[in-house]
Amino acid sequence: MKNVIEVHNLCHRYNGRSIYENLNFSVPEGSVCGLLGKNGQGKTTLVNILMGFLKPTSGTCLVLGENSHNLSPAVRHRVGLLHEGHLAYEFMTITQTEKFFRGCYPGWKSEVFFHLMDKMGLPHNHRVGNMSCGQRSQVVLGVIMAQSPDLLILDDYSMGLDAGYRRLFLDVLHDFAAQGNKTIFVTSHIVQDLEQLVDTIIFLDKGEIMQVGLDQFMRTFRKYVFQCERDASLPKDEVIRGFEQRGRQVALYSYEDMEAVDRHLASLGIQAHQLCRAPMSLEDGFIGLMGKY
């Protein structure tokens, strides 16, 4: 299977400060990949590099085989971008937006665009600038879908959207991914949503990358809960990858099985009452792995 995105030895510095050194990962065709990282870890920078709006200090970043900061029009034609904040031409109406993009994309699917627009029930002469954030996001989504790209890069699509619009997004993206051979690279600050969408996760933390399949991660990374009598300050180590404490209830995250965790806690002198494995959401896993700060 070929890779739609390939990143080799990517380094980026800003104002002399290193943001990452030697980043390597790839996104195979047909996968839905979510980029997760806390604020300030260079998520937006990475997306900007992928989108071609930032030239990395060194290393290569190939999108559909071409350098991302120098994509040919033909490759750009195959890539759909959703910019942070659902960037759109606010001075255009729905009709004008459609007319504008139809002229730019030979394979443009008007019916896809209008199908999404008509769901909102807005007149077609409604200006984008007068829309709510949610409505605007639908216009942008309509534009991208009508382009029928092979690769979608979405920068925090959920920003400013309420649950309804987020679900709408997920629905549309799900259908898009189901067409086959379509690749999606997505970031979102609502981690929970991604669980319903992605098949691969890339964790970005302190300039390091960890790429893992969603299923594998959800299967191997585990959440345990137990009761603790006093304040349990746990060290982070090979077994304990993260923990949270609320009152006497402690949640602990680990790749190890329950027996190993129990043994490890005992060796630390901690009495874990009612230790058991608990269901873990992706958001739990994210916090467990990356911490809160």
Binding site: M51, H83, L87
Partner: peptide, 14 residues
Amino acid sequence: LGRRMRIALHLPMA
């Protein structure tokens, strides 16, 4: 504004 020209810069034209 909001570097909106990124939209145009991504259009499939030079």
